[in-house]
């Protein structure tokens, strides 16, 4: 059910995205930072599922909250002539790598354990 919903969402988003008119060049930088923030939330969500402390409310608020906050910070940075979006990118991408490392460790551990069990059974 969840997988189907995700698939439908992705396909619909892609189709609609291909058919929408081009947005103004000025807003594309905001959209870019929002995408990075949303991706960060997705990886955070996967990590929390692995850690078994996943909370849907926190996930949703993080997804939209981070995106909106990063856009607002980028606008503020432009008004102050400070490239705040750089800080946002560093934080988000850094967190993404951390989360990816956790996910990787989890699956590598799982896989090596399975391999070990198989070998023990053979012996």
């Amino acid at each position: 059910m969840i997988a189907i919903a995700i698939l439908i969402g992705c396909v619909l988003g892609a189709i609609l995205g291909m058919n929408t008119p081009m947005i103004s060049y000025t807003y594309s930088s905001y959209l870019a930072i929002a995408i990075i923030a949303a991706l960060d939330s997705v990886f955070g969500g996967i990590t929390s599922v692995i850690k078994k402390n996943f909370d849907l409310k926190i996930f949703i608020t993080g997804f939209f909250g981070n995106a909106i906050l990063s856009i607002l910070l980028t606008i503020l940075g432009e008004k102050l002539n400070v490239d705040i979006y750089l800080a946002a990118i560093v934080v988000f991408v850094g967190r993404m790598f951390t989360n990816l490392a956790i996910i990787r460790r989890y699956y590598v551990d799982k896989w090596s354990n399975q391999l070990k069990e198989k070998n023990e059974k053979k012996d």
């Binding site: 919903a5 995700i6 969402g9 992705c10 619909l12 988003g13 892609a14 609609l16 995205g17 291909m18 929408t20 081009m22 947005i23 594309s28 959209l31 870019a32 929002a34 995408i35 949303a38 991706l39 997705v42 949703i60 997804f63």
Partner: peptide, 12 residues
Amino acid sequence: MCFALTLGICVQ
């Protein structure tokens, strides 16, 4: 959420 994310990526 997936809809929003893919929409954003495609538009971008």
